[in-house]
Nucleic acid binder design. Structure first.
Lengths: 336, 336
DNA sequence: GAGCGATAGGAAAGCGCTTTCTCGTACTCG
DNA sequence: CGAGTACGAGAAAGCGCTTTCCTATCGCTC
């Protein structure tokens, strides 16, 4: 038995207005066709009692909530916020709200988080780079309607949207190579991150296809602090250019290098990934690869809505990053 | 009538296990005291059908959701994220989830947003700097349990937590004054923002109490872009130091000034507010005033939980910002 | 003026779960 | 060995809302 939360119920409104709950419901949902005076009375009473229908009860009766969930690995990363913003705007236009959940607190419980959050709404957009493929395909079924971000073809027929990290980082590496860099160092993302794997693949391709080029790898992470911590390791490699897992890491790295007395880009060039708004404001401004993140959100919504409606979603999309050249990259010193 | 979402219901589990729904419910909630074999069977069947209880139905029956909402004016601002992070951790420890809503899309509908979101959960933490006092006290009642952030004593007995922007910005101004600056310029926050008013108050106090000091005001906003746009206006004032509404604006301003060829801090000192993580990484690193934001979230949860439980919350708290001196502030040129 | 269709609005079932009440069974104790 | 107790588990009500019937009333036509 619920402790009454003080809010008026439909029954109370009905009684006060001298009509049946059914009528109140109809009036509230603009499905009422009878005497306008009755509707008016109901509305007045409802306003008077400041009645507003209970969400749970509605959801229960209707079987839908008009809400979707968005799970991100780290809400503090502006790149995900940009996706969220696009998603939330798009969903809002169709009358849907989005619930945000951040799995950074405990990544291990991501599947649980997803499941739990999913049950509070009609569908879910999942961005879970650290979840294993097995875990993913295991829970995918129980999460539908579902759209995946940055996880391509998990075998299942789940619509997905991805950024081509592989191609993006390769372009970045090629940019550095064209400047004259031969020894690059990649500051890795989180151990279990799938998108880190894509980047590694891209770099391996680059290395293979580019005679004379070499890519060393050092441990990193996904945050500015990880970037700072990686600075000494980067310097030790002797590489003339560093590719960071993302902009956050790059920013940390930039500062870590400065603290070590290393000049960027004179001694070491640095690149990021994502082109977060702050990337323009670093010193020197960060060369990075970007993708229109809000677009990712919009596209995700299109597909999710289709799935919700039982229609066929548009085909999967793999967005190609665009290299944004700024001044954190330059020719290596000795080659000048 | 709900369209069945494919998920198993308690009735199905009950039937499959040859028991009553009541028993299933009890087993699922660890309230079962009977034959362990029965419990085991129920659990097995539940697992088999991958049953998980419907949230709405539970909420409806229980009258509670174990979720709270957090409304922020702008999720892109790292300061609010820090609050969110503290809140979410604290609430999580008590088994509560937090739903995040960002009102930046359309600030005018903040009251509606709050109301709607509130009905999806048990309580709400509201950070609505742009809502008018009237609007606020108008809806406060319908939002309870409620904790307010950065809105002190709205007359009503709503627990609140605030940052002392007035004192904080005053300290910043005094820091600049002590460096020798006499003409300061304040880059205003959003027009209707209450926290902007506090800052203005602080600066007026400073001006009144500090003979020879002068504070000009120019239009600004709350984002980096607003900061960039304010740069020419700042320069025109001829002030030797600029206090920005927050760090985001300060960062924009820093860059806007550089673009205009103005050197910081040589020609103009700049300060921010909030000490977001990026503040350390600007060039020059930003002098700012800070408050432990996650702590704000934790404190908010303490109070909210008390209110939810019908207990008396701890008294309101006004956190005192600490001035973080970095190198975006220095003695004015001619005084050197 | 009788018979018909249309229409306004109520009764009731059902969404899935929790929980009180109740009943039947298996004990225990005198 | 019978009465009383304890305990396991089911029946049913209720959370607040929507929606499908369904009935009663009205207005019309011939």
């Amino acid at each position: 038995m619920a402790r009454r939360s003080g809010a008026a119920t439909i029954a109370e409104v009905a009684k006060a207005a001298g009509v049946s709950p059914a009528t109140v419901s109809r009036v509230m949902n603009d499905r009422f066709v009878g005497d306008p005076a009755v509707a008016e009375r109901v509305r007045a009473v409802a306003a008077d009692l400041s009645y507003s229908p209970s969400h749970f009860a509605r959801s229960l009766a209707l079987g839908q909530t008009k809400a979707i969930a968005f799970i991100v690995p780290d809400l503090a990363n502006p790149a995900f916020q940009a996706v969220l913003s696009g998603l939330s705007k798009a969903a809002g236009r169709d009358g849907y709200r989005v619930l945000v959940a951040d799995s950074s607190e405990n990544p291990d419980e991501e599947p649980l988080l997803a499941r739990e959050v999913r049950r509070r709404c009609d569908a879910i957009v999942l961005c879970a780079p650290r979840m294993s493929d097995e875990e993913l395909s295991e829970i995918a079924g129980s999460l539908e309607p579902l759209v995946l971000i940055n996880r391509t073809g998990s075998g299942d027929a789940v619509p997905s949207l991805a950024i081509d990290y592989r191609a993006g980082i390769r372009s970045l590496a090629e940019h550095l190579h064209s400047l004259g860099h031969r020894h690059l160092v990649y500051v890795e993302g989180p151990e279990r991150s799938v998108s880190n794997r894509y980047r590694r693949d891209g770099l391996e391709e680059f290395e293979r296809d580019t005679p004379g080029a070499r890519v060393t790898r050092v441990a990193g992470g996904a945050t500015t602090d990880d970037g700072i911590a990686a600075a000494p390791r980067v310097r030790e490699t002797g590489a003339t250019a560093a590719l960071a897992f993302n902009d956050l890491v790059a920013i940390g790295l930039l500062n870590g290098l400065v603290d070590l007395g290393v000049e960027v880009p004179a001694e070491i060039s640095v690149t990021g990934f994502d082109d977060i708004p702050f990337a323009r404001f670093t010193t020197p401004p960060l060369t990075t690869a970007s993708v229109p993140h809000p677009e990712l959100g919009t596209q995700a919504w299109q597909r999710l809505l289709a799935v919700i409606r039982g229609e066929d979603p548009e085909p999967d999309l793999v967005l190609q990053p665009h290299v944004e050249i700024r001044s954190s990259t330059a020719r290596p010193e000795h080659s000048a």
